[in-house]
Computed example of a mutant assay.
Amino acid sequence: MAFQSAKRELRKQMRDTLGRLSATSINQQSSVATTKFLSLTEYQNAKSIAVYLSMPTGELSTTSIVKDALRCGKDVYIPYIHTVDKTSVMDMLALESMTEFESLQADKWGIPSLQLTQIPGRRNCFAGTGLDLIVMPGMAFDQGFRRLGHGKGYYDHFLTRYSKWSKKMPFLVALSLQEQLLAQDIPVAEHDWLIDAIVVGDGRYLVR
């Protein structure tokens, strides 16, 4: 299918591009993007947020966002991927404290993650009042607010589930390195969700 092969090719190009970025550049861009993100009214007014925990390389760091949200007393939820009926599913589960955040073990991609033993009794975002804002990861974004994920469909499936659970959707903010914001259109399917805003590593803020 031409559509799928176009996505695969774009992911390959992005992996090459992101693989060449220096840690210095990513750290600088993370600092600029975080400052911009923390100034957003949507973030400041949010009582509950979900935020991806960043990989060691190739994407903007969310560590300072997690710290600020916990310090401000917001409910913070992080991705937890598990298997339901032989299908891999992502839920957003509560992060209880900074101490817990700092003690998370890295998964096979180097992403800090909750362990199976930490799950029983933990709050799920679907068990409460829901989410006000989601910080979205991605491999690439475009000016039409399309997003290229890593190919697993976790976020699109999660958002579809969420839309059936609540009529009010969270504000979707992508964090993008300058190199991830493309001039070309990203190929998307009907089930691919558009994002509401993009914070770029050079301080730009694009809103739909």
Rank of each mutant, 00 (worst) to 15 (best):
Q44W: 01
A33R: 02
T87I: 09
T160I: 02
W193N: 13
E9F: 07
Q105Y: 01
L60S: 06
G138M: 13
L18A: 02
E42Y: 00
S163E: 03
S176I: 05
S22A: 05
H150D: 11
M169R: 10
I134W: 13
H157K: 11
M55D: 11
G144P: 03
F101A: 06
P112Q: 01
S176R: 07
A183D: 13
I186R: 02
A46E: 07
V89L: 02
V200Y: 09
G121L: 01
R71C: 14
G110N: 02
R204H: 06
M1F: 13
M55E: 10
N27S: 15
V66W: 00
V76Y: 03
S163K: 09
Q184I: 13
R123W: 03
K12F: 13
Q4H: 14
G203F: 03
T17F: 04
A6Y: 11
W109G: 01
W109S: 02
M55I: 09
Y43I: 10
Q4A: 14
A69D: 04
R123H: 14
M14I: 05
M1Y: 06
S163T: 00
C72H: 12
A50V: 02
L148F: 12
M92S: 01
V76M: 04
A46N: 01
G19L: 06
G58Q: 05
V84H: 11
Q115P: 06
E42A: 14
K47H: 13
M139S: 07
D185V: 06
T62S: 11
L18P: 13
V89K: 01
C72K: 15
P137K: 05
I198Q: 07
E42Q: 15
T62E: 05
D68Q: 08
G19E: 12
S31P: 00
R71M: 09
N27A: 11
M92A: 03
D85R: 15
S39W: 01
V207F: 06
P56N: 09
T35K: 11
A94Q: 08
L177S: 05
V66F: 02
R146L: 01
M90H: 04
T57L: 11
C125S: 06
T117E: 14
L131E: 07
G149F: 12
E9C: 15
D202W: 12
Y155H: 00
T41W: 15
Y52L: 08
K164V: 12
V51E: 12
L38D: 09
I49P: 04
T83N: 10
Q4V: 15
Y162K: 03
M14Y: 02
K36P: 03
L172W: 00
